[in-house]
Amino acid sequence: MPQLDVTTFPSQLFWLGVCFLTLYGILYYVALPKVARVLESREKTLEEKINKASLYREEAETLLAEYEAALARARSESQEKSRAMARAVSSELAHRQKEFLGKISDRLRMGEQELFRARLETGSHVKEVSRDVAQVILEKITGRPYSLEELEK
């Protein structure tokens, strides 16, 4: 079995030591720092990007909040305006109604006066007619004309 040939041991151990030390030196001073540097820079870059992303998100959120505030303001303003408009319209309406009611009551009063006058007139007419009728009736009965003065008595 070649593995048990003791004469090769010093050489094997010597070269193992040399090779392993060389490998350790290369890895320790060259290869591993390189890997570590790349990994670190990647981590840093990722962190930066994440920070930036969160910054953008915050900005977006403030923008959204501003937009919503503006929207709410606009809505309340429009409501205010529409309410004012409604108030104006209703007051105008009330004014017009009052005017109209006033006109109607004027007309009503005028109509009543006319009616009253007409009734008065009618009353005087009835008197004359009844006198005339009475005069004619008396003339027919008595056969002689009656003057107005006689009839008044």
Binding site: T7, T8, P10, S11, Q12, F14, W15, L16, C19, T22, L23, I26, L27, V30, A31, L32, K34, V35, V38
Partner: peptide
Amino acid sequence: VDISFTNSSLFMVLTVALITIFLVGGM
């Protein structure tokens, strides 16, 4: 003491060289 460079030593050196190429070349 006999410390001859043998075929075993050659493959150890090759191994170190390959590892170095693999790591440094990759990065």
